[in-house]
Design a protein around this nucleic acid. Structure first.
Lengths: 187, 187
DNA sequence: GTCTATACCTGGATAGAC
DNA sequence: GTCTATCCAGGTATAGAC
């Protein structure tokens, strides 16, 4: 891994663990093993580094979700697979986390990938729910857009609760609860 | 409001908006109108101030929730009232927000109120769900603990999505989706 | 490309005068 | 109780040598 790459990866990790306000250029240098001059040679500063790191996290979230959504099985099966996918619940979501960062939210460039990622994810899930409803997998009364939003919220909130309780099991319980409610809609 | 009180309130607001790592003593002084010496006269430092502020936010969350839970109506009605209660979705949850703060999570004293608040809230909701199930309001297959965790997660995740989209409507949509699923369990 | 030196500001606090 | 002075570390960069 070259220096530029290590800088981006280190920034990604630090943004995940500490957010933008909690991450200093010095910490990035230490974690990546790059020197001061080296870091500022490759990037103009903390903001540009964060832009690269956030873009990468957003892309990865999307790719991993799409891998489940595009897999085999019925709509219910693919949604369940996505919700139950292994996750490091205590680390939280590298993208959702950024919504709590005042400086990320205040900067349109940093904010955009966060906004787009959740818009895409919710829409994609809503499409699957609509597909399942059309197939007769779900009851006709199911609202795809609202349900998709609730499901994504369960994941994001599950991370919050898992961290609050310091227990990955709480995340799993939130998912169980959501799937329990959802499958009441399965015909 | 006396100086001590203004200091706590200002800290509460800043922790809500910017988290612990994003809040400086200077910012607290500016917002409260208290001077340096005055702040350090009333509190030993940022940590003690945060402790007072977090305790207050946690207590308030609990009191406001209990007001809905202890109100009139069936279990379903009280749960619905709680979920639909007016909230400033874009500001997020003053307690849940702290789970994203590395320094809050690293300090047992700062962490405890966060942990206890969500444990209490989830338990309280699970009790209502169990009560409703016993009354025949919900289907016998409903799992109170998992469902309660999912409902709290929808709220916490709803804040995340609302901030990501910069739209309070997204929060409302998540709640709608959750209630839509829940009421499929209503007999 | 990477290093070291330098700069200026803020974070977080203590000391002592009033 | 509140004010001002002072302190040292760290945040965030720029400049220029190698």
């Amino acid at each position: 891994m070259d220096t530029r790459e290590r800088l981006i990866e280190s920034t990604r990790e630090l943004l995940w663990e500490r957010g933008y306000v909690g991450t200093s250029p010095k910490a990035i240098q230490e974690r990546s093993g790059a020197g001061q001059g080296s870091m500022y040679h490759h990037f103009h500063g903390k903001l540009e580094l964060a832009l690269a790191a956030i873009g990468r996290s957003a892309g990865e979230l999307r790719d991993r979700a799409e891998a489940e959504f595009a897999g085999p099985g019925t709509a219910v099966e693919r949604i369940t697979a996505y919700l139950r996918r292994e996750r490091d619940a205590l680390k939280g979501c590298p993208v959702g986390r950024l919504t709590q960062d005042p400086e990320v939210m205040a900067d349109p460039e940093l904010r955009r990938p966060v906004e787009e990622t959740f818009a895409w994810l919710t829409d994609r899930l809503a499409g699957l729910l609509a597909e399942g409803r059309a197939n007769g997998e779900f009851a006709a009364g199911l609202d795809p857009a609202a349900t998709a939003t609730a499901l994504v919220a369960v994941l994001q909130g599950g991370y919050v609760l898992a961290r609050a309780a310091d227990s990955a099991a709480v995340y799993a319980r939130a998912v169980d609860g959501a799937l329990g409610l959802l499958t009441a809609h399965v015909r």
